[in-house]
Amino acid sequence: QEPLTASMLTSAPPQEQKQMLGKWLLPLIQAMHPALAGKITGMLLEIDNSELLHMLECPQSLWSKVDEAVAMLQAHQA
């Protein structure tokens, strides 16, 4: 997977930025939650790009958000 950097991201238009972040997030989430990855990625894309960029550099914060998203999704589907 090619690395995504803050400068690459901020040089793209806003909608494109979410697309770039989604393409980066999806395979990571698929590794842990194959069936829910598309929806979890969709939920995480509602987070501010600046925070998503932080998560890009800090997997611990990424997985913490993924756990939150999974819990919300399961509660919603229950």
Binding site: Q15, G38, G42, L45, E46
Partner: peptide, 22 residues
């Protein structure tokens, strides 16, 4: 909008529209 389709699902290659259509 309807909550039935929440959350929107991300597909690579499909422009992301987020929650704006819900």
């Amino acid at each position: 909008g309807s909550s039935i389709n929440w959350p929107p699902e991300f597909h690579p290659g499909v422009p992301w529209k987020g929650l704006q259509n819900i």
